[in-house]
Design a binder for these strands. Sequence first.
DNA 1: CTTCTTAGATACGGAAGCGTTGCTTATATC
DNA 2: GATATAAGCAACGCTTCCGTATCTAAGAAG
Lengths: 204, 204
Amino acid sequence: MDDEAAETRPAGRRRRGAALVAAIHDAAIAEVLEVGLGRMTMEGIARRAGAAKTSLYRRWTSPHDLLLDALRDAFPQEVPSPASDDLRGDLIEALRQMVGWMGSPQARAVAAIMTERDRHPGLAEALFERVFEPRGGRFTRTVLRHYAACGAIDGALVTPVVADIGEALVIKYFTDTGVPPDDDTITAIVDQAVLPAVGAPLGR
Amino acid sequence: MDDEAAETRPAGRRRRGAALVAAIHDAAIAEVLEVGLGRMTMEGIARRAGAAKTSLYRRWTSPHDLLLDALRDAFPQEVPSPASDDLRGDLIEALRQMVGWMGSPQARAVAAIMTERDRHPGLAEALFERVFEPRGGRFTRTVLRHYAACGAIDGALVTPVVADIGEALVIKYFTDTGVPPDDDTITAIVDQAVLPAVGAPLGR
DNA sequence: CTTCTTAGATACGGAAGCGTTGCTTATATC
DNA sequence: GATATAAGCAACGCTTCCGTATCTAAGAAG
Protein backbone atom coordinates (compact mmCIF):
# COMPACT_ATOMS: atom_id res chain seq x y z
CA MET A 1 0.00 0.00 0.00
CA ASP A 2 2.92 2.33 0.57
CA ASP A 3 6.54 1.32 -0.01
CA GLU A 4 7.16 2.25 -3.59
CA ALA A 5 9.65 4.17 -1.54
CA ALA A 6 13.04 4.73 -0.06
CA GLU A 7 14.82 1.41 0.23
CA THR A 8 13.12 -0.13 -2.78
CA ARG A 9 13.98 2.64 -5.15
CA PRO A 10 17.37 2.11 -6.84
CA ALA A 11 19.06 5.26 -5.63
CA GLY A 12 19.61 6.69 -9.08
CA ARG A 13 15.96 7.02 -10.12
CA ARG A 14 13.76 9.94 -9.38
CA ARG A 15 10.00 10.10 -9.48
CA ARG A 16 8.47 13.31 -10.74
CA GLY A 17 5.06 14.88 -11.05
CA ALA A 18 2.10 12.57 -10.71
CA ALA A 19 4.08 9.50 -9.69
CA LEU A 20 5.79 11.38 -6.91
CA VAL A 21 2.56 12.95 -5.74
CA ALA A 22 0.88 9.54 -5.64
CA ALA A 23 3.67 8.10 -3.53
CA ILE A 24 3.43 11.00 -1.12
CA HIS A 25 -0.35 10.63 -0.94
CA ASP A 26 0.01 6.97 -0.02
CA ALA A 27 2.62 7.83 2.55
CA ALA A 28 0.36 10.45 4.11
CA ILE A 29 -2.50 7.99 4.51
CA ALA A 30 -0.22 5.31 5.87
CA GLU A 31 1.24 7.84 8.26
CA VAL A 32 -2.06 8.98 9.73
CA LEU A 33 -3.05 5.37 10.29
CA GLU A 34 0.16 4.55 12.08
CA VAL A 35 0.85 7.59 14.22
CA GLY A 36 -2.54 9.29 14.33
CA LEU A 37 -3.75 12.68 13.30
CA GLY A 38 -2.03 14.48 16.14
CA ARG A 39 1.41 13.14 15.39
CA MET A 40 1.47 13.54 11.63
CA THR A 41 4.48 15.46 10.51
CA MET A 42 5.96 16.64 7.23
CA GLU A 43 9.22 14.96 8.07
CA GLY A 44 7.52 11.69 8.86
CA ILE A 45 5.55 11.65 5.61
CA ALA A 46 8.62 12.57 3.58
CA ARG A 47 10.65 9.87 5.27
CA ARG A 48 7.99 7.26 4.61
CA ALA A 49 7.57 8.31 1.00
CA GLY A 50 11.30 8.32 0.45
CA ALA A 51 10.97 11.89 -0.74
CA ALA A 52 12.68 15.10 0.22
CA LYS A 53 10.99 17.33 2.71
CA THR A 54 11.52 20.14 0.22
CA SER A 55 9.28 18.40 -2.29
CA LEU A 56 6.44 18.39 0.19
CA TYR A 57 6.75 22.03 1.14
CA ARG A 58 6.77 22.94 -2.54
CA ARG A 59 3.19 21.64 -2.84
CA TRP A 60 1.52 21.65 0.55
CA THR A 61 1.61 23.85 3.60
CA SER A 62 0.86 21.32 6.36
CA PRO A 63 0.29 17.63 7.02
CA HIS A 64 -3.45 18.20 7.23
CA ASP A 65 -3.53 19.97 3.91
CA LEU A 66 -1.60 17.12 2.38
CA LEU A 67 -3.84 14.50 3.93
CA LEU A 68 -7.00 16.12 2.62
CA ASP A 69 -5.48 16.21 -0.81
CA ALA A 70 -4.62 12.53 -0.56
CA LEU A 71 -8.16 11.64 0.47
CA ARG A 72 -9.79 13.66 -2.24
CA ASP A 73 -7.71 11.83 -4.76
CA ALA A 74 -8.73 8.49 -3.30
CA PHE A 75 -12.46 9.19 -3.48
CA PRO A 76 -15.20 8.88 -4.48
CA GLN A 77 -15.99 5.34 -3.55
CA GLU A 78 -19.39 4.86 -5.02
CA VAL A 79 -21.24 1.84 -3.79
CA PRO A 80 -23.66 0.55 -6.37
CA SER A 81 -26.46 -1.60 -5.11
CA PRO A 82 -27.36 -4.59 -7.18
CA ALA A 83 -31.06 -4.92 -6.69
CA SER A 84 -32.58 -8.29 -7.31
CA ASP A 85 -35.79 -9.23 -5.59
CA ASP A 86 -34.15 -10.56 -2.48
CA LEU A 87 -34.34 -7.93 0.24
CA ARG A 88 -32.55 -9.98 2.85
CA GLY A 89 -29.77 -11.00 0.49
CA ASP A 90 -29.28 -7.47 -0.73
CA LEU A 91 -29.07 -6.12 2.80
CA ILE A 92 -26.47 -8.69 3.70
CA GLU A 93 -24.55 -7.87 0.56
CA ALA A 94 -24.72 -4.13 1.29
CA LEU A 95 -23.25 -4.61 4.76
CA ARG A 96 -20.61 -6.90 3.33
CA GLN A 97 -19.62 -4.14 0.96
CA MET A 98 -19.50 -1.73 3.86
CA VAL A 99 -17.19 -4.03 5.81
CA GLY A 100 -14.93 -4.33 2.82
CA TRP A 101 -14.86 -0.59 2.36
CA MET A 102 -14.13 -0.02 6.04
CA GLY A 103 -11.00 -2.08 5.68
CA SER A 104 -9.47 0.26 3.12
CA PRO A 105 -6.79 2.67 4.26
CA GLN A 106 -8.80 5.60 2.94
CA ALA A 107 -11.84 4.70 4.99
CA ARG A 108 -9.78 4.26 8.12
CA ALA A 109 -8.12 7.60 7.56
CA VAL A 110 -11.53 9.20 7.28
CA ALA A 111 -12.56 7.45 10.48
CA ALA A 112 -9.49 8.82 12.21
CA ILE A 113 -10.46 12.34 11.20
CA MET A 114 -14.05 11.82 12.30
CA THR A 115 -13.12 10.60 15.75
CA GLU A 116 -10.88 13.60 16.33
CA ARG A 117 -13.23 16.13 14.84
CA ASP A 118 -13.56 18.14 18.03
CA ARG A 119 -9.78 18.48 18.20
CA HIS A 120 -9.47 19.58 14.56
CA PRO A 121 -12.82 21.06 13.54
CA GLY A 122 -11.49 22.66 10.40
CA LEU A 123 -10.20 19.38 9.12
CA ALA A 124 -13.53 17.60 9.49
CA GLU A 125 -15.33 20.48 7.80
CA ALA A 126 -12.90 20.53 4.93
CA LEU A 127 -13.30 16.80 4.60
CA PHE A 128 -17.00 17.25 4.09
CA GLU A 129 -16.72 20.20 1.76
CA ARG A 130 -13.86 19.01 -0.33
CA VAL A 131 -14.03 15.25 -0.20
CA PHE A 132 -17.43 13.76 0.34
CA GLU A 133 -20.80 14.18 1.94
CA PRO A 134 -21.24 12.58 5.33
CA ARG A 135 -24.15 11.21 7.31
CA GLY A 136 -24.99 8.10 5.53
CA GLY A 137 -26.65 4.94 5.68
CA ARG A 138 -25.24 4.98 2.18
CA PHE A 139 -25.24 1.20 2.15
CA THR A 140 -28.45 -0.26 3.48
CA ARG A 141 -30.43 2.90 2.81
CA THR A 142 -30.04 2.48 -0.91
CA VAL A 143 -31.35 -1.03 -0.66
CA LEU A 144 -34.26 -0.14 1.59
CA ARG A 145 -35.34 2.72 -0.65
CA HIS A 146 -35.30 0.45 -3.65
CA TYR A 147 -37.61 -2.08 -2.05
CA ALA A 148 -39.83 0.66 -0.67
CA ALA A 149 -40.20 2.01 -4.20
CA CYS A 150 -41.16 -1.48 -5.37
CA GLY A 151 -43.79 -1.67 -2.68
CA ALA A 152 -42.10 -4.65 -1.06
CA ILE A 153 -41.84 -2.80 2.22
CA ASP A 154 -43.62 0.19 3.71
CA GLY A 155 -41.80 3.34 2.68
CA ALA A 156 -42.94 5.18 5.80
CA LEU A 157 -40.83 2.82 7.87
CA VAL A 158 -37.60 3.75 6.11
CA THR A 159 -36.76 6.61 8.45
CA PRO A 160 -33.26 7.99 9.01
CA VAL A 161 -33.00 5.91 12.17
CA VAL A 162 -34.01 2.71 10.42
CA ALA A 163 -31.67 3.37 7.52
CA ASP A 164 -28.81 3.58 10.02
CA ILE A 165 -29.46 0.39 11.98
CA GLY A 166 -27.26 -1.90 9.96
CA GLU A 167 -24.36 0.51 9.67
CA ALA A 168 -24.57 1.43 13.34
CA LEU A 169 -24.32 -2.17 14.46
CA VAL A 170 -21.46 -2.91 12.10
CA ILE A 171 -19.57 0.08 13.43
CA LYS A 172 -20.25 -0.78 17.05
CA TYR A 173 -19.12 -4.35 16.51
CA PHE A 174 -15.95 -3.07 14.95
CA THR A 175 -15.09 -0.60 17.67
CA ASP A 176 -16.03 -3.03 20.43
CA THR A 177 -14.03 -5.97 19.19
CA GLY A 178 -11.41 -4.38 16.97
CA VAL A 179 -12.22 -6.68 14.06
CA PRO A 180 -14.89 -6.40 11.36
CA PRO A 181 -17.97 -8.57 11.74
CA ASP A 182 -17.93 -11.88 9.88
CA ASP A 183 -20.74 -13.12 7.64
CA ASP A 184 -22.63 -14.79 10.46
CA THR A 185 -22.68 -11.61 12.46
CA ILE A 186 -23.76 -9.59 9.46
CA THR A 187 -26.58 -12.03 8.87
CA ALA A 188 -27.63 -11.76 12.50
CA ILE A 189 -27.67 -7.97 12.23
CA VAL A 190 -29.91 -8.10 9.18
CA ASP A 191 -32.25 -10.74 10.58
CA GLN A 192 -32.50 -9.54 14.13
CA ALA A 193 -32.34 -5.78 13.75
CA VAL A 194 -32.87 -4.45 10.24
CA LEU A 195 -35.64 -6.67 8.93
CA PRO A 196 -37.83 -6.37 12.04
CA ALA A 197 -37.67 -2.59 11.75
CA VAL A 198 -39.13 -2.67 8.25
CA GLY A 199 -41.90 -5.01 9.20
CA ALA A 200 -40.44 -8.30 8.04
CA PRO A 201 -41.42 -11.36 10.06
CA LEU A 202 -39.37 -12.02 13.19
CA GLY A 203 -37.46 -15.11 14.15
CA ARG A 204 -36.10 -15.48 10.62
CA MET B 1 -13.60 20.76 35.68
CA ASP B 2 -9.89 21.43 35.89
CA ASP B 3 -8.40 24.69 37.04
CA GLU B 4 -7.94 24.24 40.74
CA ALA B 5 -4.56 25.12 39.39
CA ALA B 6 -1.75 27.45 38.58
CA GLU B 7 -3.12 30.96 38.40
CA THR B 8 -5.84 30.35 40.95
CA ARG B 9 -3.55 29.04 43.66
CA PRO B 10 -2.10 31.85 45.82
CA ALA B 11 1.59 31.19 45.21
CA GLY B 12 2.39 30.39 48.81
CA ARG B 13 0.15 27.32 49.20
CA ARG B 14 1.08 23.80 48.33
CA ARG B 15 -1.21 20.86 47.79
CA ARG B 16 0.04 17.48 48.94
CA GLY B 17 -0.99 13.86 48.78
CA ALA B 18 -4.53 13.13 47.76
CA ALA B 19 -5.47 16.70 46.88
CA LEU B 20 -2.50 17.03 44.59
CA VAL B 21 -3.12 13.67 43.01
CA ALA B 22 -6.74 14.55 42.36
CA ALA B 23 -5.76 17.80 40.67
CA ILE B 24 -3.27 15.98 38.48
CA HIS B 25 -5.86 13.34 37.61
CA ASP B 26 -8.28 16.03 36.50
CA ALA B 27 -5.58 17.70 34.49
CA ALA B 28 -4.70 14.43 32.77
CA ILE B 29 -8.28 13.83 31.67
CA ALA B 30 -8.70 17.40 30.52
CA GLU B 31 -5.45 17.15 28.64
CA VAL B 32 -6.35 14.01 26.71
CA LEU B 33 -9.64 15.58 25.69
CA GLU B 34 -7.98 18.72 24.44
CA VAL B 35 -4.85 17.51 22.72
CA GLY B 36 -5.61 13.84 22.14
CA LEU B 37 -3.95 10.66 23.20
CA GLY B 38 -1.02 11.09 20.85
CA ARG B 39 -0.05 14.51 22.07
CA MET B 40 -0.35 13.99 25.80
CA THR B 41 2.78 14.98 27.59
CA MET B 42 4.06 15.06 31.13
CA GLU B 43 4.93 18.71 30.77
CA GLY B 44 1.50 19.55 29.45
CA ILE B 45 -0.30 17.80 32.29
CA ALA B 46 1.97 19.37 34.88
CA ARG B 47 1.41 22.80 33.40
CA ARG B 48 -2.34 22.36 33.38
CA ALA B 49 -2.40 21.06 36.93
CA GLY B 50 -0.15 23.84 38.12
CA ALA B 51 2.18 21.19 39.50
CA ALA B 52 5.86 20.52 39.11
CA LYS B 53 6.97 18.02 36.52
CA THR B 54 8.99 16.39 39.26
CA SER B 55 5.85 15.61 41.20
CA LEU B 56 4.49 13.67 38.26
CA TYR B 57 7.63 11.66 37.66
CA ARG B 58 7.73 10.75 41.33
CA ARG B 59 4.47 8.85 40.93
CA TRP B 60 4.01 7.86 37.29
CA THR B 61 6.26 6.79 34.50
CA SER B 62 4.36 8.11 31.47
CA PRO B 63 1.29 10.10 30.44
CA HIS B 64 -0.56 6.88 29.63
CA ASP B 65 0.19 5.39 33.00
CA LEU B 66 -1.06 8.54 34.64
CA LEU B 67 -4.20 8.62 32.52
CA LEU B 68 -5.12 5.05 33.37
CA ASP B 69 -4.72 5.86 37.03
CA ALA B 70 -6.96 8.88 36.64
CA LEU B 71 -9.65 6.82 34.94
CA ARG B 72 -9.56 4.05 37.48
CA ASP B 73 -10.11 6.59 40.17
CA ALA B 74 -13.06 8.06 38.32
CA PHE B 75 -14.87 4.74 37.88
CA PRO B 76 -16.94 2.69 38.30
CA GLN B 77 -20.04 4.35 36.88
CA GLU B 78 -22.70 1.84 37.67
CA VAL B 79 -25.95 2.39 35.88
CA PRO B 80 -28.88 1.04 37.85
CA SER B 81 -31.98 0.35 35.91
CA PRO B 82 -35.21 1.41 37.54
CA ALA B 83 -37.64 -1.20 36.33
CA SER B 84 -41.26 -0.30 36.37
CA ASP B 85 -43.63 -2.03 34.01
CA ASP B 86 -43.11 0.33 31.14
CA LEU B 87 -40.72 -1.23 28.67
CA ARG B 88 -40.74 1.67 26.28
CA GLY B 89 -40.28 4.25 28.99
CA ASP B 90 -37.46 2.29 30.58
CA LEU B 91 -35.66 1.90 27.26
CA ILE B 92 -35.89 5.62 26.63
CA GLU B 93 -34.66 6.31 30.13
CA ALA B 94 -31.75 3.90 29.70
CA LEU B 95 -30.61 5.63 26.54
CA ARG B 96 -31.02 9.00 28.21
CA GLN B 97 -28.72 7.82 30.95
CA MET B 98 -26.28 6.65 28.35
CA VAL B 99 -26.28 10.04 26.65
CA GLY B 100 -25.72 11.73 29.98
CA TRP B 101 -22.85 9.42 30.78
CA MET B 102 -21.29 9.95 27.36
CA GLY B 103 -21.02 13.63 28.10
CA SER B 104 -18.76 13.14 31.11
CA PRO B 105 -15.05 13.81 30.68
CA GLN B 106 -14.24 10.31 31.86
CA ALA B 107 -16.43 8.69 29.25
CA ARG B 108 -14.98 10.82 26.51
CA ALA B 109 -11.48 9.96 27.62
CA VAL B 110 -12.39 6.29 27.46
CA ALA B 111 -13.82 6.85 23.99
CA ALA B 112 -10.59 8.51 22.91
CA ILE B 113 -8.64 5.46 24.05
CA MET B 114 -11.04 3.12 22.31
CA THR B 115 -10.85 4.89 18.98
CA GLU B 116 -7.06 4.81 19.04
CA ARG B 117 -6.77 1.28 20.27
CA ASP B 118 -4.85 0.05 17.24
CA ARG B 119 -2.28 2.79 17.79
CA HIS B 120 -1.88 2.02 21.48
CA PRO B 121 -2.93 -1.58 22.02
CA GLY B 122 -1.42 -1.83 25.47
CA LEU B 123 -3.42 1.10 26.69
CA ALA B 124 -6.75 -0.33 25.59
CA GLU B 125 -5.93 -3.68 27.18
CA ALA B 126 -4.91 -2.08 30.41
CA LEU B 127 -8.10 -0.07 30.38
CA PHE B 128 -10.09 -3.28 30.28
CA GLU B 129 -8.02 -5.09 32.86
CA ARG B 130 -7.55 -2.29 35.29
CA VAL B 131 -10.54 -0.06 34.89
CA PHE B 132 -13.66 -1.76 33.75
CA GLU B 133 -15.07 -4.55 31.71
CA PRO B 134 -15.99 -3.59 28.16
CA ARG B 135 -18.45 -4.80 25.58
CA GLY B 136 -21.75 -3.69 26.74
CA GLY B 137 -25.12 -3.00 25.97
CA ARG B 138 -24.90 -2.16 29.65
CA PHE B 139 -27.80 0.21 29.27
CA THR B 140 -30.62 -1.24 27.22
CA ARG B 141 -29.51 -4.82 27.80
CA THR B 142 -30.26 -4.58 31.47
CA VAL B 143 -33.75 -3.36 30.68
CA LEU B 144 -34.42 -5.97 28.02
CA ARG B 145 -33.27 -8.81 30.28
CA HIS B 146 -35.54 -7.61 33.01
CA TYR B 147 -38.61 -7.66 30.81
CA ALA B 148 -37.60 -10.99 29.31
CA ALA B 149 -37.40 -12.41 32.81
CA CYS B 150 -40.90 -11.09 33.51
CA GLY B 151 -42.17 -12.76 30.39
CA ALA B 152 -43.17 -9.44 28.86
CA ILE B 153 -40.98 -10.11 25.81
CA ASP B 154 -39.50 -13.23 24.29
CA GLY B 155 -36.13 -13.88 25.89
CA ALA B 156 -34.86 -15.65 22.78
CA LEU B 157 -35.04 -12.34 20.93
CA VAL B 158 -32.67 -10.59 23.33
CA THR B 159 -29.52 -11.55 21.43
CA PRO B 160 -26.21 -9.68 21.64
CA VAL B 161 -27.10 -7.89 18.42
CA VAL B 162 -30.49 -6.80 19.68
CA ALA B 163 -29.07 -5.68 23.01
CA ASP B 164 -26.72 -3.39 21.10
CA ILE B 165 -29.21 -1.69 18.78
CA GLY B 166 -30.00 1.27 20.98
CA GLU B 167 -26.42 1.98 21.99
CA ALA B 168 -25.19 1.54 18.44
CA LEU B 169 -27.62 4.10 17.07
CA VAL B 170 -26.87 6.59 19.82
CA ILE B 171 -23.14 6.25 19.14
CA LYS B 172 -23.58 6.58 15.40
CA TYR B 173 -25.73 9.65 15.79
CA PHE B 174 -23.11 11.17 18.01
CA THR B 175 -20.18 10.49 15.72
CA ASP B 176 -22.12 11.51 12.62
CA THR B 177 -23.38 14.81 13.93
CA GLY B 178 -20.96 15.64 16.72
CA VAL B 179 -23.76 16.24 19.18
CA PRO B 180 -25.67 13.79 21.40
CA PRO B 181 -29.16 12.79 20.29
CA ASP B 182 -32.03 14.74 21.82
CA ASP B 183 -35.11 13.17 23.40
CA ASP B 184 -37.02 13.01 20.14
CA THR B 185 -34.24 11.13 18.46
CA ILE B 186 -33.88 8.77 21.40
CA THR B 187 -37.60 8.10 21.24
CA ALA B 188 -37.37 7.42 17.54
CA ILE B 189 -34.52 4.98 18.12
CA VAL B 190 -36.53 3.08 20.69
CA ASP B 191 -39.76 3.06 18.69
CA GLN B 192 -38.34 2.42 15.25
CA ALA B 193 -35.40 0.14 15.99
CA VAL B 194 -35.33 -1.42 19.46
CA LEU B 195 -38.99 -2.26 20.04
CA PRO B 196 -39.54 -3.87 16.62
CA ALA B 197 -36.58 -6.17 17.26
CA VAL B 198 -38.16 -7.54 20.42
CA GLY B 199 -41.50 -8.10 18.79
CA ALA B 200 -43.35 -5.00 19.90
CA PRO B 201 -45.95 -3.65 17.48
CA LEU B 202 -44.68 -1.40 14.71
CA GLY B 203 -45.81 2.02 13.64
CA ARG B 204 -46.43 3.30 17.17
C1' DC C 1 23.68 17.37 -26.96
C1' DT C 2 21.94 21.37 -24.52
C1' DT C 3 18.85 23.40 -21.58
C1' DC C 4 15.12 23.94 -18.44
C1' DT C 5 12.66 21.99 -14.88
C1' DT C 6 12.28 19.75 -10.62
C1' DA C 7 13.71 16.30 -7.04
C1' DG C 8 17.21 15.12 -3.61
C1' DA C 9 20.60 16.04 0.03
C1' DT C 10 22.22 18.71 3.70
C1' DA C 11 22.44 22.16 7.03
C1' DC C 12 20.64 26.00 9.73
C1' DG C 13 18.66 28.20 14.21
C1' DG C 14 14.72 27.81 16.93
C1' DA C 15 11.19 25.61 19.62
C1' DA C 16 9.46 21.99 22.56
C1' DG C 17 9.43 17.75 25.11
C1' DC C 18 12.23 14.33 27.16
C1' DG C 19 13.87 12.32 31.85
C1' DT C 20 17.00 13.67 35.43
C1' DT C 21 19.50 16.34 38.88
C1' DG C 22 20.50 19.41 42.91
C1' DC C 23 18.56 22.55 45.67
C1' DT C 24 15.02 25.41 48.19
C1' DT C 25 10.92 25.70 50.82
C1' DA C 26 6.23 24.69 52.33
C1' DT C 27 3.50 21.46 55.01
C1' DA C 28 2.66 17.83 58.41
C1' DT C 29 4.21 15.48 62.63
C1' DC C 30 6.01 14.98 67.05
C1' DG D 1 9.59 24.99 67.84
C1' DA D 2 12.45 21.21 65.78
C1' DT D 3 12.40 17.76 62.31
C1' DA D 4 11.02 14.75 58.57
C1' DT D 5 8.43 14.53 54.39
C1' DA D 6 7.19 16.01 50.04
C1' DA D 7 6.47 19.81 46.52
C1' DG D 8 8.31 23.41 43.72
C1' DC D 9 11.91 25.32 40.82
C1' DA D 10 15.48 25.72 37.45
C1' DA D 11 18.75 23.87 34.69
C1' DC D 12 21.06 19.99 32.26
C1' DG D 13 22.09 17.51 27.55
C1' DC D 14 19.43 15.14 24.24
C1' DT D 15 16.18 14.38 20.61
C1' DT D 16 12.66 15.60 17.13
C1' DC D 17 10.30 18.56 14.23
C1' DC D 18 9.81 23.10 12.40
C1' DG D 19 10.34 26.05 8.01
C1' DT D 20 13.83 27.70 4.99
C1' DA D 21 17.88 28.14 2.16
C1' DT D 22 21.57 26.33 -0.69
C1' DC D 23 23.52 23.34 -3.85
C1' DT D 24 23.79 19.15 -6.74
C1' DA D 25 21.98 16.13 -10.03
C1' DA D 26 18.35 13.48 -12.50
C1' DG D 27 14.49 13.68 -15.95
C1' DA D 28 12.12 15.81 -19.80
C1' DA D 29 12.06 18.76 -23.86
C1' DG D 30 14.09 21.14 -27.71
